[in-house]
């Protein structure tokens, strides 16, 4: 019953928050309207969200988000330096990252994280969904970079969304 009425419990508060941000007003009325929308939209769009998402360890997720934000900032400065100082001496490379995560959400989150942290862009997922092709802007040690991606980003995602 609760499954039918509230197919995606996480989506409701997120949609309510987005509604209040969109209206740019944090009042009780808009909160109610947002919750109403957050309740109705998941029911009507159920067919597009077949996968059930459960977050196992919220604290790990929060730490992961903090790590990613920090990396975005620091690595952006590094890439800015590379672009400004010596674009001719960059050593771009393609890397293949073998994937341990299996679910759609975890793979897309990992790919997006890789693209957002500067120096790497995810380019292609293999048809068997077990390898991710990544382009790195400046990679002298490709194996170390793959290892960093696996331990720093994939491990926490696997912990949160799988297992």
């Amino acid at each position: 019953m609760i499954q039918r009425l509230l197919p995606h419990p996480l989506l409701t508060p997120i949609l309510a928050l987005i509604w209040m941000l969109l209206a740019n007003e944090f009042s009780a009325g808009h909160a109610l309207l947002g919750l109403l929308l957050g309740w109705a939209i998941p029911i009507f769009t159920l067919r597009f969200w077949p996968e059930q998402t459960r977050i196992r360890r919220p604290l790990t997720l929060l730490r992961f988000i903090a790590v990613v934000l920090y990396d975005i900032l620091i690595a952006n400065l590094a890439v800015a330096k590379l672009i400004v100082s010596r674009p001719r001496r960059l050593q771009p490379a393609f890397l293949e990252v073998p994937l341990d995560v299996r679910s759609d959400l975890a793979i897309s989150l990992l790919a997006n994280t890789i693209s957002l942290t500067p120096g790497t862009v995810s380019a292609e997922l293999s048809p068997e969904r077990d390898r991710l092709l990544v382009h790195a802007l400046h990679a002298t040690d490709t194996e170390a970079l793959v290892a960093t991606i696996k331990t720093r980003y994939e491990a926490p995602l696997k912990e949160v969304f799988e297992e």
């Binding site: 674009p87 960059l90 771009p92 957002l116 500067p118 862009v121 382009h135």
Partner: peptide, 22 residues
């Protein structure tokens, strides 16, 4: 600047997607 200056398309992809977004 990265979009205009870097040598191949895959490298040029890096500038706009991250630096510009940030």
């Amino acid at each position: 600047l990265g979009l205009a200056r870097l040598r191949d398309f895959y490298s040029r992809l890096h500038g706009p997607t991250k630096a510009t977004t940030l």
